[in-house]
Each structure stands twice: as C-alpha cells, then as structure tokens.
Design a protein around this nucleic acid. Sequence first.
DNA 1: TGACTTTATAAAGCCCCTTTCCTAACCCCT
DNA 2: AGGGGTTAGGAAAGGGGCTTTATAAAGTCA
Lengths: 415, 415
Amino acid sequence: MKRTSRDIRTTNRYQVLRQIIAESPTSRQELAAATGLSLATVATLVGELLDLRMITEVGFEDSAGGRPRGLVAVNASGGALIGVDIAETYVHVELFDLALNVLARAEEDVRPGESLPEQVVGHVAAAVGSVVAQAGIEGARVLGVGVSVPGQVDRATGISEYAPNWDWHDVPLLDLLTEHIAYPLYLDNPLRAGAVAELWFGAARGRGNAVVVNLGTGVGAGLILGGGLHRGVSNSAGEWGHTTIVLDGRLCRCGNHGCVETYVGAPGIMLNLRELSPGSTLLHPEDQTATIDALSRGMLEQDPVALKVVRDTARYLGAGIASLVNIFNPEVVVLSSWVAATLGEPLVAEVREAVARHALPRPMAATEIVLSPIPTDPACLGAATFALEGALQSVGQRNGKKRTTPARSRTAPPS
Amino acid sequence: MKRTSRDIRTTNRYQVLRQIIAESPTSRQELAAATGLSLATVATLVGELLDLRMITEVGFEDSAGGRPRGLVAVNASGGALIGVDIAETYVHVELFDLALNVLARAEEDVRPGESLPEQVVGHVAAAVGSVVAQAGIEGARVLGVGVSVPGQVDRATGISEYAPNWDWHDVPLLDLLTEHIAYPLYLDNPLRAGAVAELWFGAARGRGNAVVVNLGTGVGAGLILGGGLHRGVSNSAGEWGHTTIVLDGRLCRCGNHGCVETYVGAPGIMLNLRELSPGSTLLHPEDQTATIDALSRGMLEQDPVALKVVRDTARYLGAGIASLVNIFNPEVVVLSSWVAATLGEPLVAEVREAVARHALPRPMAATEIVLSPIPTDPACLGAATFALEGALQSVGQRNGKKRTTPARSRTAPPS
DNA sequence: TGACTTTATAAAGCCCCTTTCCTAACCCCT
DNA sequence: AGGGGTTAGGAAAGGGGCTTTATAAAGTCA
C-alpha cells in the first residue's frame, strides 16, 4: 500500500533482470530501450547485478561504427533457486539455475493417508535435499526456496490458513519447514505462483494486466494488475473457480452449485464426458490424467465425442473467461496448468471463439488468449520466482552500516 | 505503468486532502497519523495546499501541555468543481465547493430523439452555464469539470468510443465540449466515477481494495485495487454486468444470455416481479423508477410479493457479488446507484446473506458489504472528483520555469 | 520566572531517476 | 599510422521525494 522510492528501484531491478533472462546476451542499450529507463539507471542496475554475480559480461557486439556494446548475460551458475509444488497427491521439487533451466528434479508421492503437516513437510525436506545433492551444488549457492501450497496462505506469517484437500487449518507451515530447510523460504499458493511465472518468463512478460487461468483438478486465476501480482486484502484473491456460471447447477466441493470449476476442472470435464456419452471408451473413471489424455488423442483423431466434450467445456470456459475479460480488461489471458497443456491449442482455439461470443467487443478486442509457453510445472517455476524476487529485494536493504562511533554517555562526557 | 517519485507525491497529496475533507478541521499530527507519512512531509503538503488556498488555518487546539496544534480545514470557497452525469434520459450537473457541498444543480432532459452528440453537448453546456450562474461564482474559481458519459471512454483522447444507448461510435466528445466549456475537462464513465467517489468520500475511503457495484438500469462495477482505480488496458474494466451467471439464461441487450444485468438491473428486477406475479399492482410496466419505489414501499409493508422479489434479486446479486469477492478479495463491497439507494438496507441485508452463502469463507471474512453513504448522484460527485484530482495533479507540474537563456547557435559562438 | 512539553519548521541525509559532459573504443579515410 | 566521426559507458550534477534530527516557537505547571 505505502509506496516509497525504494519500490521503484525494486521494480526496475526486476524489470532489468527479467529482460536479461529473457534475452541473453543483451546490451545495456537494448535494456534501456526495453524497459524505458535511462541508460544511466540501467547501467547502475546492471552494475549491481554484476556485483551480485547474477549476470556476467560476455563480450562485445559491433555497434554501427562506434565503440562496441558490452554484452551481459545471465550467470547461470551464479546461484540456484528451488521451487516446490505441493499438491494433493505429490510433492514436486525442481532446482533451477539462474537462467531458469532445470538442473535437478525430485518427486515424492503423497499417499491419501498422509495428510499430517509433518508428513508433507517430511516429503518436501527429502525432495529438497535430493535436488541439492543431485545438482551437486554447495548450499551457499541456493538463493532461496519457494513453496507453493494449495489453498489460502498468509505469506507474511507463513501460515497455511486453509488447505481444502487435507483439511488443514492455520498450520504454521513456514515454521515447520524452517526446521528442515536452511535456505530462505517463500510461501504462497499455486495460483499466484503460476501468475508470477507467466509475468517473469511466460506470456505475461512485459504486460501490465494479465489473467492467468489455471486449469487443473482445481481451477483458479492469478491476476497481474498494474504490472504486479494482485493479492487482495487477505492474500486470497484469484478464486475464480468458484464463480457461479450456472445458477443451481452442479454441486461443487465448496458447497455451492454451478461453480466454474465443476464444469471445467478435470473432474468436471469427466462429468461432461459422462453426461454426453456414459459408456465412452475415453472415460477412465478413476483416472483424471488418463481421461484428459484420451480426450486429447481423441481430438487429434477427430473423434466426435472428444470434439464435442471439448467444445462443451470450451463453452463453459468461454462464458467464465469472458466475464474475466469484461471485468479486468486484460492484455492477455493465459491458459495454464496440466489440463490446458494436455488439451493444448485445439482447446485454446475453441475457447477463443467461445470467449469472443460472450465478451463485450471493446475489452475483447484488447485481449489475447494464449496457451502458457512454460514447459515445466508452472507452480514450481513460479515458486522459484518468488525466491528470486526475494533474493533481489534484499539487495536494496540497507547494508547494516550502523553508526561506528559508540554512543557516548551525555552525563559523563570525556574531559 | 511507469512509476516515478512524483507519483508518490501525487498519491500523498491526494491522501492528505482526502483526509482533510473527511475530517475538517484537523491537525497536522492527526494527518500524519492517518496517512502514515512523516510530520515533515505532511507539513510541506499542507503548506502546498494552503498556498493553493484549498485549505485554510482555522485556529488551534490544546495539546497535552505543549504548544497547541494548528488546525486546518477545507477552504470551501477556495474553488468550485463541476460534475456532469450524462445518462440515457437526462443530463445532471452539480456544482460543488471544495468541501463537496452542492452549491447548485441543474438538470436537462434528453428526449428519446436527441441522440446526436451535438444535442447532448448542447444540454451539457446549458446546464453547466446554469450552475455557474446560479452559484454566482466567477469563472476563474472553477477548477474543472468532470463528465461522466456511459459506455466506453478513452479518457486520454476524450473520445466516447462506444455509447450503447445512442449508438455512438468514436465520438470526439472532449473536442465538442471544449467548444462550449472553457474550464478544464475530464472525461470518464459512470462506473469509474462512482468508484472514485467512494474512494474519496464514501465507503472505500482509506481502503486499498474495494469493489463498487453499480445497480441502476445498467449494472457494472468500479474497481479500486491497490489503492487506486483499476482501468484495465483499454480503460474498459468493470463491465461486471455482462458476467454470465445463468448459462443460457435471459437474453441480454449485449446479445448474450444469462448476464447478471438481466436479473439485477432495474428491468431485470421488473422481470423478476412479472415472472413471480404477473398481475402485481407493484408493477408499473413502463416506469422503472415507479416500480422500484413500489417494491421498496412493499417491503416496508411486509408485502409478500415485494419481499420475495427482493429476495430473488438478492439471490442473483449474491451469486454475482460472491464471485467478485472470491476473485478480488476486497475489503469492502459498496452497493451504489439508484436501485441500491431505493431498496436500501433491507436489500443489503438480503445480499449479505446471499453472498455469505456463495462466497468462500476466507475472502468473505475479510469483506464488508455496505450501502453507499453518498447522498447525491454518485456519478456527479465522482466526475467532480476527477476534476479535483486533475487540479491537484497539475500542482506538481514543473512550474513553467523553462530555460531562460536562449539557445545559442554552436556554429556561431559569441566571440 | 524557569523547567518541561509539544508543535512546527528548517536543515541535513539518503534514495532514486535523469540529463549532461567527458572519456573510451572502434571505424574509416587519408 | 594518425586523425576525424561515431557510439558506448561512466561520472557528476541536478531535481524530486521522504525521513530524521536539530532548532525555534508556544504553551503549561511549579
């Protein structure tokens, strides 16, 4: 809420590093043009990042007849970031270098019984240890660990206020993790992680207003507004999945009827399929992934049932996303998470059409609808991005230069 | 998008003046506490406002044993602001002093045939002239004129991109108005005007995140996010009225089916009534205002039909507003505009209940749902507020201290 | 009247960004 | 090989802003 000139600096630092990561190597000139900052500012920020060893100078580039431009690039080995994606059935951990390449990966299954925070934390700790070992990185290089945990999270206190899948209430997750993990920790939820990942590395890069629609088992949206993540007053913004689109429609696990999620989440899509063709071979009653995969293949083979199911789903999605477009007037809507990735471009094409039918022409004209270009788990990447942001933020911290002269007692001055 | 330290100053100036208007007289101490700024900053800002004659020193207040606090208050006669609310059937103009009291009022009817921009502009010019004359104000005191015009507006160029009621397309409204009105002009739409009015003077004061729901003939929402108005990428955010809540529901004038507006806008409410009790005496088929008035009276008299209609309407509203709560996680939802004002607290009570049934518990717990406390036409007040913001913004402008030394030709230097 | 409080203003310090000036580095041409 | 010409990059100066600290101003109370 309260803005200070330091926030401007932080924003600019983000922008510059983002640009460098996106386009390495690059010159200061190019950075200035891309960010709109002055050359001088870019130069000092680049200097800072060089000092931090996050980027390095990598040579020169001919200029049109004059002094060559110095090129900088991400120093991939300048540090490591860890992203943790805690989900209902698994804990997924990835270790990234600073170019955001995945250096190591670990996955632990969370079995249905294991709903105690300690058990989950155990899995996380094990997986984090594993990726660090695999990558052969010294601990000091790890700049931070971002953790995405479903449900409502208070990132300031590190408390998981509510996690629906395990019925957690006010679990002090950060404290529990701190006991096992020595690196700086950053907690948030997958919606916001996904949004930040798109903002830094995906389809929302350079956009001030974007909506990242998450289509998985659950459904939600991450909001980029005014160039930054919108959290809402209690850090629970983005619960788009429980928007009513069919009054008195399907029963949702939230207790309501007709939520978007019940039509376009993976279980909802399965229900769409079952209602259309109860005996379809595409349906794998107990396996969401298999069913969505089958639908994807079915579409490629022009299977009429698959096509119809996807079209129906796109219709629901279209109505829901059109509302988002009308309300936010974003530059881009990004479809993300595994269901979107699996159904891919054919789904997006249907969605584009459906949204165009429902949205108002003016906001629609300004909005692009695209598939997330992020290849890996966006929650992992986003969580790692939180760690990166955290590492960059502390750069600006006053560097502890306390007064060196000892306080002298006024009552007993030196003679 | 691009933030500079000047924006911080502007924000702080807004905050201080807002606080002074809200609580006059007040001391610098109180302002510092309320805004979170340092005493020094508050002092300089107060100094600026004193110089502008927007506020005045009005005496002193005892402090606990020390120097008394100087008190400042709005200098009501320090300037005048004009708010223009252009609507489908009328043009409403109000002239405010700096304490935002209405000094004069004028209304012109726009007849069904008069859909030409020139005709509407003529009404506006006449009404503006009238309020200035009524108030007996010298023209120089008028700080600006805010104009709220329905539909999509490009406030930068002053073009009314699209006004549904008159089928305007890309009308250069600002240029047309400039020909008749000599004061600084500020154009925007009623949704955003309403939101700004709430932010400055209403239920959203001091809140960083608020949603202002407009219930009139049309329906929409103004969004206060991160302490400021959210405009979206093409200044058309807030079109909440065309959110689908009943897939394949009632036909809306936007061409879609099941939009919120078709259930909770005034015509929608009339339809709710007709469907429930086709022959009801509450229904005035051609008169929205009369029907809503009748419903309001009916509720007071415990008329079962009226109660049921309002409850049904609240149910739709509840589903729609719950979605907003889930998505934005605002501190407050404000119900505004004439339908909300007429149905009043009984409606709000029903809505509160309905929203609580639909929204997720966490965001719901952080959200208050209230009726707009603004007594007059919120679009007028909001439009005037745009003018006030405009007047404050130009304070910071570099005060024309251009280079005084004439540029000397380099090829012919003075000997 | 003097000590103590509290408020308000002035000064100094720090942060940030930009503009301007100057040096560095490279090209090409003579 | 040695100058222009050109472009890049850095240092310094300048302009905003906000805060902390010191000082002046204006009371109260003993």
